[in-house]
Structures are given as structure tokens and as C-alpha cells.
Design a protein around this nucleic acid. Structure first.
Lengths: 342, 342
DNA sequence: GTCGCGACACCAATCGTTTTGGACTCGTAT
DNA sequence: ATACGAGTCCAAAACGATTGGTGTCGCGAC
């Protein structure tokens, strides 16, 4: 790809600047800039000379300088609680793929859900001059509206939104998904379907969907059948044991997320019961583990990739100035995927 | 945190510059810069005035301009095949945590293992002026040495190294890990221990470890017991079935990675055999799924987080100029973690 | 003839910092 | 008195691109 002589020229210390290219080609830096950007016309002959010079020197424009002048960085930031969490890594991938096409790179921040880390990262990325931000962190609602959107940087939120008129939001209809999951259980002939919720004050839409489904199918809601988990496997395990200690055991349970469901499976196995014969299970999220567990988990698909991807598209449309209106909201479908636990 | 009046001042269009701070404080931009960086002394009184002006205007230095001048971006790039792969997302997290302390941000690139994407991302990050790069992509060895290290940007590789005298390498001793895994199987009284390898030309160190263990324990190597997988669950499933079709079935198998092992478990379940009673299993990597599968997978721990973390530390030491010598190599331990499959 | 215009190239200002190289003022030791 | 160093501060030159304004040339229209 690169001839030896070139290395010698381009290589050693500093990189070659537009001025050097210009002088080699016998034109002004302005002209070089124009053949690069195509923003103004330049004669075919000079254009040729310049391109030759560029090639010969192995010139690559200094992006930092460019960014300073143009006030854009061709970079978007995604701030997530933890990239290690499959949901967020997939989301990040979707975002990266979506913006990559328009030449944007992706900068990630792990907040661990800590509001102060969230704040400092927000400052950090603004200082870095990113062109757009997707906030997938949790404590997003209770924030001063002085945030990034106030400074004119496009923002799209995932899950919960800023209270700012210009930020977009992409989310999923948890209630509809949960309703479908519960209805599916009932449709399978189960009569005592329980739910393991998330921790207090979170995921209430999923609780809602469960209740709605019960109501729609004429089942009366039994408070005993609604127990708390904490989104974790261990929490699901504990909750399931509580459920099975009831005098009237449930024959099906809808779990607020997959990890919880996996914990529930652990508990059922403890009791030497069969899934789904003795108790059927539906989860929520469709993480990879849902297909690794046996039997494979029936669950509601939380479209992480699509979420990131559409967030990316919305960001791009704003960054390119193609859309400048008030915040849009898109809610993605979360279909039930039937596997073996229900 | 931020008073209303400030928003009014700092807010609307453009951000406040060092010049505005200077003029408000009645000093020169130079002085402001110095109170910020502390590189030269400034009188206590003026310092106070300047700091007050900064606070009052809500001044935040423009990093792009700073980067241009100082030729550093306080940003590192990590190029991985796929952030979605748990190994790489955990590695990335380790890296991010390691460099965050020194004020570096993390920029990620997904190459999908495609060499041309790898090349273009490498160019991209160099153009972006990142201060350091960790290459965790695969096709790293067969590259022109003209790469980033040639341009003076510190690089540390993961797994396989560039052929450049100044790049650091952090890796794991696959051979030792594999040897331990195989020995463990033998120590459990298994006499026919097979191996499911990776695809051709990859992970040969793991094959090596298996063979060494066999030799050490006086077992003669049976070529029939060495079959190919492809790092995937499906591949493991297929390979395991092949193994079980042998007239003399193995009673244990060492799988080149966890996904393969999980596929093997699928196959064993197909045959209604018991794990580990009928056939014992050891994997490699210790991904999350290893504890989700039942029975929980005994495996060799591939320390993704530590890998990223030490890569980060090595990068920092080079970026800060604390180390400028020839490439170092650190190999991390990969202990066997015993669970229920062996 | 000259006016207008399109094509082409360049000059100089600009983006917002950091970083020399002085300059100026005091003390204080020579 | 002179010299010198420490303490303060500033003016101006980078850093490497982009861009608004100018200027030149050639040519067809009036």
C-alpha cells in the first residue's frame, strides 16, 4: 500500500500539513482545501496536481484543526450505565452502526448509574465538542434543564427523557409487551399467573401491563401473586421461592426481566418441578442468556440494537440539521418470542 | 449547582472563551491560562479575580482548541471486533476504568474482524488525534509496520502483536490454561479426554496445552479425539455429536471456548447423557453464560477486565512518557474455575 | 467599449487555546 | 550604584485547518 519512499517523506516526526501539500503543488492552502472538500470549484489541471501532491506526501488532514474551525467533531457520545451490560453494549453497537455511515465515531461513557458521574461525563463530552449525545443512563429525568440540549447539542434519550422541548426519545412500550406476555400465559390455560416485579419505583409500566392483561381476561388480581425482585438472578430466585411457599401456588409467572426469570428457573429446579409443565415462565428483554438456559426462555424482546440504531438516526437527522423541530418520540415494538418455558 | 443568572450569561449561542474571562478579570488571556494550568506563577490576588471571573461566566475551556495546540486529545481508542461480544465489552470497561483516572476518554471501533474496516478505523482514530490505541482486533499481525506506532502514537495489542519494536502486548497464557484444564479432567479420573478446537489457524496455543497435558500424564494422543469447532455454540454442538459417534466415546472433553462447551452440552443433552457423570466438560473464557447454563460450566478464566485494565495502564505509562522503551509483554494468569461440569 | 458574469485562484482572518520571549518591578547582595 | 534573581504579567506567535472577501481572466451581451 505505501511505498518505502513515502514513509521517508511522511513519516518521521510531525505529520504533513496542508501548507506543505500546497507548496509542493505550487498552489495556496486554500486551493488544497477546496479540492479536498469540493466546496468550491478548482480547475481540472490544478486539481490533478494537488491530488498528486497529496498522494505523494501521504497527506491526511488534521481533524483537530478542522474541528476547531468547523465547530463539529464528527463524534457522538453515548452515556450508559455499564457497557458490560448486554443490553447497553448491543444498544451501543446499534448506535455505532447507525452513525458510522454518516462518518460519526462513537465515544462511550460508563456512569454506573451514578448521577455525579453522569454529570461529569456530560460536561466532559460537551467539552470535547461532540456533535450529539445519546443518554441511556437512568437518572435522566430529574436533571436541571440546563443540560446539553440547552447548549445546542442534539440529544436523544433512551428510556426516560430530559425535560427539554428539543430532545428526542426512543423507548419501548413496556406495558403492551407485558400485557402480551401475561395474555400468552393465560392463553396457555394457566389460571394462577403471578408476577415478579422490579424493585420499587422502577418498571411500573411492566406491572401495569400485567394488571391490564389480568383485567382483560376477567381474572381477579391477587396481591399475593405480585412479589418484588430486583432485576437480578438472585432476586428472582428469592422471589420465586416466596411464591412457591404460598398455599395456592401459581402455575405461571411473568418476570419483569430475563435475569429475574433465570433466577426463578433456579428456584423451580430446586423444587424438582418441571418447566413449563408445573410452572410456566415468561421473561422480558430477550438477552442472549435466554437461549442458553434450558429450557429456552420465552420472553418479550427488548430491541436493544434497534433502539440504538433509531437513536442514531434521530441524532444524525438533527446533527445534519435535517430536523430541528420539537422532540420526537418513537416507541419500538417489543414482540413476544415464544420458546420453551411457556 | 448552576444559578439562574449564570445560564443567562453563559447560555445562549456560543460558549465563553478565555478572552472573555480575561477581559472580565482585567488580565490577559495568558494569565487566565496560567491560573488554569498552574504552569507559571500568578499572584494570589489576580488568581482570585480570575477564578471569580471563571466561575461567574461559567467558563469551560474549549478542548478542541486546546488539543490543537497541545497535540494531545486525552482520548484513547479501542478497536475490537465487536463490542457486543462480552469478552470485548468487559475488556473495554477495564480499559475505560484504567484510563479514566488519568483523564482519558474512550473511543470505540467495531471492526467485525474485517481487515479493511480495521485499517480504516486505524486511520480514523489517528486523524482524530487519539493519544493511544489498544488493538484487540484479530488480524493484527499481518499488517504493514507503517501502522500507528510508526507515527509515534502508543499502541498496545491484545492477543497478538504488531511487528513493531515499541508496541506493548498483553495476553494470557492459553497453553498453560489449557494444560491445567486438561490435567484437571485427567485428575478426575477420566481416561479418554477429547478436545474441541477452534477453527484452523487459530487458538493453536490451546491445542498445544491439551497435548502437553496428555503427554505429561502419560496418555497417548488419539487424533480421533481432536475435532474442530468454530468458537460458536452450534459448532460445539456439531463437534460433540461427531465425538459421540465414535466407537470409543470420550468420557471428558476440553472445549476451546465456553460457547463451544455450551454447544457440547446441548449435544450431550440430546443423547440423554448426564454431565459430568457420563461426560465431563471444561470450557475456556468464563463468560457470564458459564454460570447460567446448568450444570454450571467449569472453565478457564480469561481475564477480560484485567486485560483491558493492564492494557490501559501500559498505555497511560507511555502516553505520559513515563515509559518509552521497547515493547513490554505481560501475560496474565488464567486460573481454572471449578464448577459443576468437571 | 464596457458591463456583467462565471470560473478559478489567493489573501488574510478566524476558530480558542498554549507557549515562548520579554518587560517591568521590587528586593537584596555585591 | 550596579547587578541580579524572583515574582508577575503581557504581546504575539504558533497549532492546522476553513472561508469570506478580492482579484484576475476571458467571453458573450448590450
Amino acid at each position: 500500500m505505501s511505498q518505502p519512499g513515502i514513509q521517508e517523506l511522511a513519516g518521521d516526526r510531525s505529520r504533513v500539513t496542508i501548507a506543505q501539500v500546497a507548496s509542493l503543488a505550487g498552489v495556496s492552502p486554500t486551493t488544497v482545501s477546496h479540492v479536498l472538500s469540493g466546496k468550491r470549484m478548482v480547475g481540472a489541471a490544478t486539481k490533478g496536481t494537488v491530488e498528486e501532491a497529496i498522494r505523494q506526501l501521504g497527506y491526511r488532514p488534521n481533524n483537530v484543526a478542522r474541528n476547531l474551525r468547523t465547530r463539529r467533531s464528527r463524534m457522538v457520545a453515548v452515556v450508559v450505565p455499564d457497557i458490560t451490560n448486554p443490553f447497553y453494549s448491543v444498544l451501543t453497537r446499534g448506535l455505532a452502526d447507525a452513525v458510522d455511515g454518516s462518518g460519526y465515531g462513537t465515544y462511550v461513557c460508563n456512569t454506573d448509574g451514578l448521577p455525579d458521574r453522569e454529570d461529569s461525563f456530560l460536561e466532559d463530552v460537551l467539552d470535547r465538542g461532540v456533535d450529539g449525545i445519546v443518554m441511556a443512563s437512568v437518572n435522566v429525568t430529574d436533571r436541571t434543564d440546563a443540560g446539553p440540549a440547552g447548549l445546542g447539542t442534539p440529544v436523544v434519550c433512551v428510556g426516560g427523557a430530559f425535560d427539554h422541548p428539543q430532545v428526542d426519545l426512543v423507548t419501548v412500550d413496556d406495558e403492551v409487551g407485558s400485557r402480551a406476555a401475561t395474555l400468552h400465559l393465560i392463553g396457555r390455560g394457566r389460571h394462577r399467573v403471578a408476577m415478579i416485579q422490579g424493585p420499587p419505583e422502577s418498571g411500573t409500566a411492566r406491572d401495569e401491563g400485567y394488571c391490564v392483561a389480568l383485567a382483560e381476561s376477567g381474572t381477579t388480581f391477587d396481591p399475593q401473586l405480585m412479589v418484588r425482585g430486583d432485576w437480578t438472578r438472585k432476586g428472582g430466585h428469592r422471589a420465586m421461592h416466596a411464591l412457591m411457599a404460598l398455599t395456592e401456588r401459581p402455575d405461571a409467572v411473568f418476570c419483569a426481566n430475563d435475569l429475574t426469570a433465570i433466577g426463578a428457573m433456579d428456584a423451580i429446579r430446586d423444587l424438582n418441578l418441571a418447566i413449563p409443565d408445573d410452572v410456566a415462565l415468561v421473561g422480558f428483554d430477550d438477552v442472549d442468556a435466554a437461549t442458553i438456559v434450558t429450557p429456552a426462555l420465552t420472553t418479550v424482546r427488548n430491541p436493544a440494537y434497534d433502539t440504538g440504531s433509531t437513536a442514531g438516526q434521530m441524532l444524525v437527522s438533527r446533527m445534519l440539521g435535517r430536523y430541528t423541530d420539537v422532540g420526537r418520540t418513537v416507541v419500538l415494538p417489543c414482540p413476544l418470542v415464544e420458546r420453551q418455558t411457556a
